[in-house]
Design a protein around this nucleic acid. Structure first.
Lengths: 190, 190
DNA sequence: GTCTATACAAGGATAGAC
DNA sequence: GTCTATCCTTGTATAGAC
């Protein structure tokens, strides 16, 4: 594998395990048997590693949502899609839990407004589809509410889980949060 | 004012303004026209400042909830109480938004399980009261769901707001989130 | 008890040899 | 592409003046 890939892989592994702030560039370099200077040849700043990991993570999430639209609207399909996204988030836990440090990087290197708008647009299309297909009864205000609900849940369930359910296995944690969202949506079932 | 109080006040001000990770002990000392060494006489570690701020913050939040119980259960009373808590959280935004760094301190210096259990217990008493008073129709599963819902919302709305609604005035932000919770609870109105 | 000055370690970043 | 050496910032600790 190319050195760059090995660095990314090892960095993500350690970020997930100990948290971004606890992992130094020297730690990553040492685990890969290379010098810190060499690592900085490939990624001149620690932030660059995080930026690359974030970019790939976002892309993989968008792909999951797009696949949902190809299949067509259904509540169970949406929950399956969400479960896939949650699993993907879980595999990038280090990036999501390290809010404080990561947020600053996102602010500087990504157009957050755009990304957020896209995400909310995804959800709007999904909920509108579920209304039109007749699976859910949703007023315009209900849709706005559900978008707000799921935006916040989808962004922070991992952080809560990392603290409150640290001893739960992954499957159980994801079941719990998907279950909450399922219950929320079921309040609007026809 | 005692030096210790001045340090806490200035630290919180800068944490709120720039985020915990961006504020060094030297920054705080400089703003107060004192040496870094003097600051470290009063608080030997940066974490000690955060611990003291967190302790006071928690105590003030608990007081707000306890006042609610003295008045007696009512949906509007609960929302007023929540608005007060949210305002208090807003005034301690730095502590809430800096998750990554703060979480490690909480893990080490507070009994998180206990605190969380207490908070969920607060909410259970509140929702049970609203059910018994006849304002809401809630099954046992509904109550569990609402506790999960409000635990996550109450913990993370500030972080989302700091990123997504950074340009909104405080009043508007809090109205938005209180409104979401109000809408959620209204789904269970008799 | 309060404060200044200073030293040290750890981590991110960079320059330059090979 | 890889390494060594070095710098700078930040948290932390302490000796010593008042």
């Amino acid at each position: 594998m190319k050195t760059k890939e090995r660095i990314l892989q090892e960095a993500l592994r350690q970020f997930n395990e100990r948290g971004i702030s606890q992992v130094g560039v020297r730690d990553i370099a040492r685990s890969l048997d290379m010098s810190a200077g060499n690592l900085s040849y490939h990624f001149s700043r620690k932030a660059d590693i995080i930026i690359e990991l974030l970019t790939r993570f976002r892309k993989s999430n968008d792909l999951i949502y797009e696949r949902y639209f190809e299949i067509g609207p259904s509540l169970s399909g949406f929950l399956d899609c969400l479960r896939e996204v949650f699993n993907n988030q879980y595999e990038h836990a280090g990036l999501m839990v390290g809010q404080g440090e990561v947020q600053e990087i996102i602010r500087q290197h990504f157009n957050y407004k755009d990304a957020e708008h896209n995400r909310k647009d995804f959800f709007r299309r999904i909920f509108t589809g579920l209304r039109d297909s007749g699976e859910l009864t949703l007023s315009a205000a209900d849709i706005d509410f559900l978008i707000s609900f799921i935006s916040l849940f989808g962004r922070f369930w991992m952080i809560e889980a990392a603290v409150s359910f640290a001893d739960w296995p992954r499957e159980k944690i994801i079941d719990y949060y998907i279950g909450l969202i399922e219950r929320q949506l079921s309040l609007f079932k026809v």
